[in-house]
Design a binder for these strands. Structure first.
Lengths: 236, 236
DNA sequence: AGCGCACTACGTACGCTGTACGTAACTAGG
DNA sequence: CCTAGTTACGTACAGCGTACGTAGTGCGCT
């Protein structure tokens, strides 16, 4: 025993073969595991996704899961890949601007379907098989856009960033209050009451004007649309 | 006892008075607590910030902390407010574009100084006293920008969003490997090796062209600058 | 054919987390 | 002065990620 325990060498889970051929047939596939974790996250929030909980959902012992998923981080990676696979990939229309808007809307819909997704969004998870397919699709949509690949990558990153930012804003309070012992409405009411008191103090005149003038609720959909348009304009 | 235990009513920590006047003098101020938590997060990462750890840093018992901070979420809120106070607020120059660029650079520097900050970035924490001051300052910088307040708010949100997105990308791998038993270089090497194998498969021709052509490392600083410029262009 | 080893499965245990609850000391308002 | 509200904090519980050890299983090689 020259090496201490397991190898302390970094491994990307996608580099591990799913089956080696030796030993008993694994009872579950990675897809099974990812689906179970996604199901839990969708229904009960990301914090409900624990190794024990996922194992229970699958119907196996907790530690059996570690045969498939060496670390919890890798479970997240499986989840991200699974939902990345939900992206619809179409034949590029020839109008890259329209295609990017379609991509953005689809990503937004995906995030609304899986509200834990923005929290896991990170370039670290950007290289799973399905994520690569999605990225390649975005670049295919940008074929008619006459620019170096570096610029195209920046555009894709920007669009995804804007979508992530806006959806995060849309769902943040809802996700936050999920585990709290009071409702989202109560939470918002408390925050608005405090904010109102602060604005009334007169210390933030412009802010008061911004939030007080248009009393109506903000149309996040329209805000998103405008932001997206402006970003695309910045590149054209 | 008609009510079960503590009141299940939502409270924003800023709405609680720091001192009520009754009982012994509190041994610490909110600023003390926030500073201790920030110190830990800066030195050992956000995950090292636990109630026990912060209490130990302050030199008091774990549960004493709960007199000041009802929930851990509120500790995060104190941290966010503390670093928001590090924003330098200057007399607007009259050139709103230049001022917004300055704001963006300052926020980026702040996030590099406190790398846990992007992870906590959320509109939920956007209404602490120092955050309000910062927002008011941004709006003041936008006084020369002839647009409705709604548009100004969208601009500020966009700039902050872009900064957050880009700094997140810059920091993510570094933060991820902090707790792992191998170095960032090893982790990156493993990911790049896997990515290279995937690209070599020929399934992602555009992606391969994008990442393979310019072999040199990407200048994130320049990318950030361009992204920022494009966003501001979109509004002008 | 059959041996050996890599693999699956999983129970137990450790150190960590947030925090509910109970108790003792203290101090300002009535 | 008294008492109610506050601070301080030890104990305890449920839950977490996961290291480790042990059985059992079946492929690949001799």
């Amino acid at each position: 025993m020259t090496m201490a325990g397991r190898a302390a060498v970094p491994e990307v889970i996608w580099a591990r073969p799913e089956r080696t051929g030796r030993g008993p047939r694994p009872a579950y596939t990675r897809a099974d595991i990812a689906a179970a974790a996604v199901r839990i996250a969708d229904a009960e929030g990301l914090d409900a996704v624990s190794m024990r909980r996922v194992a229970a959902e699958l119907g196996c012992g907790t530690m059996s899961l570690y045969n498939y998923v060496p670390r919890k981080e890798d479970l997240y990676e499986l989840m991200m890949d699974a939902v990345s696979g939900e992206h619809e990939l179409w034949e590029p229309s020839g109008d890259w601007r329209a295609d990017m808007i379609r991509v953005a809307h689809q990503t937004r819909a995906l995030m609304h379907r899986h509200t834990w997704l923005p929290r896991l969004m990170s370039p670290v998870y950007g290289f799973s098989p399905h994520a690569l397919r999605f990225l390649e699709h975005c670049l295919a949509c940008l074929d008619p856009f006459d620019a170096p690949y570096g610029t195209k990558m920046e555009l894709v990153a920007m669009v995804n960033g804007v979508v992530t930012t806006y959806v995060t804003n849309e769902i943040s309070t809802a996700e936050r209050t999920r585990s709290l012992p009071w409702s989202e409405e109560q939470e918002n009411a408390a925050r608005i009451a405090y904010l109102g008191a602060q604005l009334a103090s007169g210390a933030y005149p412009r802010l008061a004007a911004s939030l007080g003038a248009d009393a109506g609720p903000i149309d996040m959909e329209a805000v998103f649309e405008r932001a997206l348009g402006r970003v695309l304009d910045g590149f054209a």
